[in-house]
């Protein structure tokens, strides 16, 4: 396969605290290929947002990348200077946050926010920037864009504001867009539209998408591949269709049970008992062992690493150790 657009290797994110160091992301590795949509799922607190923040260089201190590397088209971006990283943000990696109501500065018009972003990254005149901004707004589906562009954010509804946010994230034509739960804060009726818009507009520009969500249904419909995070570790990653129809990691199987469309058969609904451990109390061995119905002795002692398999999948579970040994 061609060189990945983004390559994350053994990423570790830590928070030094008074009572010791918390490891929020623990050796996570994955790739995103050009033009691909990678879904990232996991319960709240699994480390999805932190992974995104680490990639775009916006971890909030004292959080820091304590290990591993992040490469964009082969070039390391995890220890660039602040100024060099700033130039990548917006220009090569765009970001869409969860809440469109708070993502826009209330005191600036949509036009001001769009043109400042365009002018920061592209060598165009102020007039060209404005024309581009109008075209973008039009593309993301703001009706009467030319007239609405000088409105303030509060003149738009939540769904419309998320469209503006998408326009802003795409203003400088980034190669990768990280969308962190882009529809969680929105009305159910517009969620699908927004997800479709992100996918469509990124595909038409050749941008890859890292779509963070805790909604397996959204992943099933949108993503090419899916990565499942659990307690700051990668549990499973693989092509969406394979993972959904034949989940292998016990945690993923549990998650699949929570997709309404896939679990209409009552007997198949898998409930995962218990809850994800807090960072201060991650068990030794497999982080999932207290909740896993299939745990055995080794699970309580050694941590399973994701095992690369020929079908383009990786599963971090001791159950599949032997299988891979045959390869």
């Amino acid at each position: 396969m061609a060189e990945p657009l983004l390559s994350v290797r053994d990423l570790v994110v830590e928070f030094p605290t008074r009572r010791g160091t918390l490891t929020a992301i623990n050796k996570v590795s994955f790739d995103i290929h050009p033009g691909e949509v990678l879904g990232v799922v996991g319960e709240s607190g699994a480390g999805k947002s932190l992974t995104g923040a680490a990639i775009i260089g916006l971890l909030e201190p004292p959080g820091r990348i304590a290990g591993g590397e992040i490469r964009l088209r082969g070039e390391r971006i995890d220890h660039l200077t602040r100024e060099a990283m700033r130039r990548i943000r917006g220009k090569r990696i765009g970001m869409v946050f969860q809440d469109p109501l708070t993502s826009l500065n209330p005191l600036y018009t949509v036009s001001q926010q769009l043109t400042e972003t365009i002018l920061t990254h592209l060598p165009v005149s102020r007039k060209e920037a404005r024309e581009r901004a109008i075209a973008l707004l039009d593309r993301v589906g703001i009706p009467a864009a030319r007239r609405r562009i000088d409105d303030y954010p509060h003149h738009f509804s939540g769904g419309m504001r998320q469209r503006v946010v998408i326009a802003l994230a795409l203003a400088a034509e980034p190669e990768l867009v990280i969308a962190d739960e882009p529809t969680t804060a929105l009305d159910v009726s517009v969620q699908a539209q927004i997800i479709d818009l992100i996918k469509e507009i990124c595909m038409e520009r050749g941008a890859s998408v890292m779509l963070i969500t805790h909604d397996m249904g959204v992943i099933a419909e949108t993503a090419d591949r899916v990565a499942v995070l659990y307690a700051g570790r990668l549990a499973e990653i693989g092509p969406v269709h394979d993972v959904i129809t034949k989940a292998e990691h016990p945690y993923t199987k549990g998650l699949m049970g929570s997709i309404p469309t896939l679990s209409h058969d009552e007997d198949r609904l898998v409930q995962i008992p218990g809850s994800m451990p807090r960072l201060t109390a991650i068990p030794t061995g497999c982080a999932f062992n207290p909740r896993c119905g299939e745990a055995f002795a080794k699970c309580h002692v050694d941590r399973p690493d994701p095992i690369e398999r020929p079908d383009n999948r990786q599963v971090a579970c001791w159950l599949y150790e032997k299988e891979s040994a045959h390869v």
């Binding site: 775009i56 700033r86 220009k91 946050f97 993502s103 500065n105 802003l168």
Partner: peptide, 12 residues
């Protein structure tokens, strides 16, 4: 959030 988003947009 809007400051965080402004940073994510790469503003100086």
């Amino acid at each position: 959030d809007y400051i965080k988003f402004a940073r994510a947009r790469g503003l100086s």
